[in-house]
Design a protein around this nucleic acid. Structure first.
Lengths: 348, 348
DNA sequence: TGTTAGCACTCATCTATGAGGAGTGCCAAG
DNA sequence: CTTGGCACTCCTCATAGATGAGTGCTAACA
């Protein structure tokens, strides 16, 4: 496979840039006139034909200009694009939007996704931290009715998880309180990812084996932690912003997209994928996601942290044709702001 | 104002029925041919002209048939329509859909709204019970960091409410535990709607006035109950079903609708209105809601109960032109099924 | 007086047609 | 290798006419 020459890249870059701005196929004339490339349109045409042959561009029909293929777009994103720095005014506005907020974690994440959608004029998305990424703070068992107990789990970061347990036999609130007390002491500050192991270890201890109370408490807690500490939910906000994009002016397409977003589990999967190798802002084109329903969309995402702990991912969902050079810095900045907000020595 | 004659009503009924089925303006010929009214189309035309003058029908343009106005639709719903009974097969399917469910209340409500959307092929909506409609079961204060406490409130029905409190001075977990203990005893089983009053009463008691612990506990609890026990959230599911309706095939309109649904507070307001006079299935046309953004939609709603206690509202949101005679029984049946599920002597 | 057939008229929708224009590919000359 | 020129393609848009559903009105009829 041939390398792209400097000029090839310039032309490809110009096509993508123009296409992102206008959404229309780009002609050779436009390129030679508007993008300081000092050759004639005929030359550009030759270059474009080459780029098409290599799979970077395509023509919707014979007498139209070129639009980038996914491959072309990917090359642009990886090698050609340079994102503008975010203007101070804009930074200030985003910072402002975070002001005056409840400290509640979920509320914060919800607001973050609204902020993303608003400043990028696309759909904003925030993946919750997994419970496993935070530390144990408190567990409580509350008897709602005979043989039915609600377990409430609170993490140090203020994440709440509840869980309805059906019991084989009834247990009184007094005894449940003892369970809580014991477990709270035992698990205080343990990372929730390790809790299961800790419980298993504890169950082997002699004092536990011979003490009904302890062993029943541990058994019960197992049922709570058995649950999906790995699973998580997301906030998606500003879906209707997607109507702004002319490429979604086709009803069928818009419907497909919204249906895909309605089933949040798919989006969770998509975001989870990017969690595996958390490296700054990343762009996932729909075609790279192996999810058929998401072919036509693009995700700009960034992980967010508390100190060194990776908590989750946030980002923006929009069409393939997006103003990446603007949105990338916004996502980056928002992620860093959120991370900063969550940073706090006392929590984790 | 003149009364409508029997025939007028028949014609109006036929127009609405046909319009609901086809979505197209209905002509005089269609009526005289298809709806066992034994007069000629010319006569029908006269009747229709009268109905138009009275504001029950309107013509999109001179050479088109008639479609019902809101007023016409309202008359049809109130006086003419008779909803079919739900087929046994369908009842069974809905019942089936509720099978094998976690007992968790929120989960149940969420599922309910999915069921509504699925069986009616429109958007399903379920308003959460207000906290004030249930009874106190448990309160817990957990210290997350210095001067920051998470308060968790659990109702007997298994509703969870949490609340982050910022304190002026730090309070240790030990003391917080005493607060919880005291409050749990004091408020056990008190309807949450009455809790505030109870607390105020308690604060006046001598033993409380002179005991720091008691009074601080009550103060703290006030901050929890001060919050909006009246507010509630909703589940809206199956929004994309709205794409099925040809009247929403206009992008602009669809966008307006989805934007209206995205801001859930409006829909909450709409549902809240119907809560005030809870009487079986009720239909609210957008134009009757005083909310500009909802002009083009219609809500079929029914309250759901636990025993005698009104918990919330569920329903279906769709276009004005809906198959009411089918959806009404579905909503009615679903509401009664849900009420039945929630019915349980031990809870409230 | 109410009902009906008939007829002229309106107007949205559909189809065909053609002009206009953006953009291409290719060729021959520089 | 680059460029100007030219024929060609094909999308888009506007126009015009045909079609047909449906109406309002009138005159005749029971």
């Amino acid at each position: 496979m041939t390398e792209l020459t400097k000029r090839d890249q310039e032309v490809l870059g110009a096509v993508v840039t123009d296409y992102i701005q206008t959404g229309e196929p780009v002609g050779s004339r436009t390129i030679s006139k508007r993008y300081g490339i000092r050759v004639s349109s005929a030359t550009i045409r030759n270059v474009m034909a080459d780029l098409e042959e290599l799979g970077f561009l395509l023509q919707p029909h014979t007498s139209a200009g070129r639009i980038p293929t996914d491959k072309g777009l990917r090359f642009y994103l990886d090698s050609l694009m340079q994102s503008k720095a975010l203007e101070d005014a804009e930074r200030a506005m985003i910072r402002q939007a975070f002001q005056g907020m409840q400290k509640d974690l979920k509320e914060t994440l919800h607001r973050t996704s609204r902020i993303l959608s608003k400043f990028c004029r696309q759909a904003g998305v925030v993946l919750w931290p997994k419970l496993s990424s935070t530390r144990f703070r408190h567990i409580e068992f509350v008897r709602l009715r005979p043989q039915q107990v609600m377990a409430v789990l609170i993490s140090k970061s203020g994440l709440l998880h509840h869980n309805l347990l059906e019991l084989k036999e009834d247990i009184g609130q007094d005894e449940l309180d003892k369970y809580s007390q014991y477990l709270n002491e035992l698990l205080q500050n343990v990372p929730l990812g390790e809790v299961k192991r800790r419980i298993l270890a504890e169950m082997k201890k002699e004092k536990v084996i011979f003490d009904q109370l302890y062993s029943r408490a541990l058994e019960m807690s197992q049922r709570v932690f058995h649950e999906n500490l790995e699973s998580s939910d997301i906030y998606i906000e500003g879906q209707t912003n997607l109507f702004n994009n002319p490429e979604f002016s086709d009803m069928q397409r818009m419907r497909r997209i919204l249906e895909a977003l309605e089933d949040k589990s798919r989006i969770v999967k998509l975001l989870d994928m990017t969690l595996k190798t958390p490296t700054g802002v990343r762009i996932t084109l729909g075609s790279e996601s192996e999810l058929d329903e998401l072919q036509e969309i693009s995700l700009i995402s960034s992980p967010y942290w508390r100190g060194d702990t990776l908590l989750g991912v946030l980002g923006v969902i929009g069409p393939l044709r997006m103003d990446y050079s603007r949105i990338i810095p916004v996502v980056e900045f928002t992620a860093s702001l959120l991370s900063q907000l969550l940073e706090d020595p006392e929590t984790c």
